[in-house]
Design a protein around this nucleic acid. Structure first.
Lengths: 200, 200, 200, 200
DNA sequence: TCGTAATCGAGACGGTACGTCGTGTCTTGCC
DNA sequence: GGCAAGACACGACGTACCGTCTCGATTACGA
């Protein structure tokens, strides 16, 4: 996917507006750099070199590294994920999670995600972006699943936040330790606990 | 704590062996640097300057930044944490977690921990150290709690790993988003789910 | 000369081309460092600090320390030397040499020259630069003097090289032992021998 | 010659006096280091490692790098040079010079000599040692040759110093530019000029 | 119709940090 | 007191990135 890797014969300005060609080239370069070197190799200089783009062009459109990382992640995601909603919370969570982990493993998105979290540890703007922009959008379907289950009376409304935190944390733990393959078998049991009906 | 911050009148070598004074000064400086600047300000140069130590001295004893971070974390931890084991898994987990979050908030250890995870995203040696050295030691008491509960028949033996992952992930999620205070209220409910008895 | 020593309020880039202001500041700083500390104090770090310039800027334009030293020497030289050519070889050599020694003593150029020769002893690129770039340019006028004398039949054509070597060596001996003042009186006799007519 | 390169099975102290074995090992190591890396590779650390000697042992007996270099040079020299004195000044100078250049080329002494001069450019103690200890000893025979010629009335007494400077400079020029082979053919003509009889 | 303005690539700028090497000094523990 | 060993504080090495700046070119748009 994303065959956008042309040798870039110098993209001149197209006037006083953002160049889609440059944007695409920069995102593709960032993706490639992350795929090859992970967070360690991810630098604006490297992306700029690879994209044949000027550094100011990158800084103009992405104020922080985190913004660029999020766009790379979004460009990849684009509809790839199944969003099951069968009414079986545990099953839906399992299906969603397995799809997510496939996505993280099959594309550079796992590395992108790890880079984003790392970035958020040294840059408070990145942390804010992660909390306010990235996570809410990414967990939207999950919120719906939990909300629907609460609507059905399976779980308490007040615990949605907590269960979501457990869900996110479970995923983070495995992706941040680069152990998605080892953790795969644990998904069903974990989802079962996260989706466990209110006990009384 | 750690009143070791004297102006260091040049610590000479004490012979062909490691100088405890230098080691202490470096750890104290690293702690201070993390406390003030977090992962963003944490550089070997900064630690070296602050400690009045030569960079080679740091590199001689800590091969990677992660090694230094882990030692800073350990130096702080030193017995501060309560390790409850009452037989009530949920209660023990709640008590342990609240102690941990206090520890993370009251000392620079929360920042140190975040730095360590960030470091592990760009350095595979750091990731290995995190997985093989740091985490097992840090989660030892938790393992015991789960194992004991399994012994009592409350949870399945096969789910210990999974429940531990849920536990760790829950903590990581809140510390990595720098939201320990917001998540505090969710601890009991989360622990309750993590410690939920096998359903059948 | 060279009143360029302003406190340098951060020279920004002037585009994708070399900044004359930075170049001048670096050369002036190098000159000052050599004047104060000689070869012992001459480090790229010291020049960088003094110039308020980044180390990469220095390395970008001067690939070796020798290149920088030669430019410092050239910047100073700039027309200061008399280049007598009266037809009296001995007299011309004496006049030229005295001018050269004045120049070496009155400016940091003597130290620069010594640094350059020292540098050439540990760096083969520097040695090559000294042999192929620096010396030929610096001895051009001397070559002309000897060639003219050979044209007049005063010395053998085949001995030009040898007499030049004797001339250069004589100067090197005194400057490298930092004894220009002690050797001054010997200049006329030495030049007389170097310019001695072919005996048969 | 100098097969002193044993693997050094830890030379313990031989009591409160200098150990000849250590001294020999250090000189041999310094010789080897100079032979392999020239002045660029010559460091007290390198010599210490190679000799299996402690750095303090080197600093105890050789106060400056120059002292060590001079001892390495002396250890090599040891009687190798012919010291002709036939009464023919030019011929004696030619013979002596050719022997010297052979010596410089066949042993690491050429490199040692170059290192010594380089060292003298950054260290004033080294320069003093070069001027007051090394050169007078090394040029003793040459002084005798010139003095004898002056005694025979061939050259003026007052010019001995000058002619010696011309002689030394000629040698320095070729050795410091690492061009002994290229300059060899010029030796007779140069010596002839240096030894030229007082013209009137 | 044409200037103005914003974009593009390029790459230099002052900095900071990297991880390594060498300096000269100091101590230890053996001889 | 000499010795090997090696740690110490210091500071230079040459390189990578940072985020900012200026350039000269290209093009769209509003006066």
């Amino acid at each position: 996917m994303s065959g956008i890797d042309q040798p870039t014969p110098r993209r001149a300005s197209i006037g006083a507006k953002r160049s889609p060609a440059s944007e695409a080239a920069i995102l593709a370069a960032a993706r490639a750099v992350l795929a090859e070197g992970g967070y360690a190799g991810f630098s604006i200089d490297a992306v700029s070199r690879r994209a044949g783009a000027g550094k100011p062009t990158i800084y103009r459109w992405w104020k922080t590294r985190a913004d660029l990382l999020m766009d790379v992640y979004d460009a990849e995601k684009a509809s790839m994920l199944t969003q099951p909603m069968t009414g079986d919370l545990t099953g839906d969570l399992v299906a969603y999670t397995e799809g997510l982990w496939d996505f993280w493993s099959a594309t550079p998105s796992g590395r992108t995600f790890r880079a984003l979290i790392a970035e958020a540890q040294s840059n408070s703007a990145a942390l804010d972006a992660l909390r306010l922009k990235f996570l809410p959008k990414r967990t939207l379907h999950l919120s719906k699943l939990f909300t629907a289950a609460a609507g059905r009376g399976e779980i308490a409304e007040s615990e949605i936040e907590t269960r979501l935190a457990l869900y996110i944390g479970f995923n983070w733990y495995y992706v941040l330790t680069d152990r998605l393959d080892e953790g795969r078998a644990a998904i069903p049991a974990a989802m079962s606990l996260i989706a466990a009906p209110a006990s009384r």
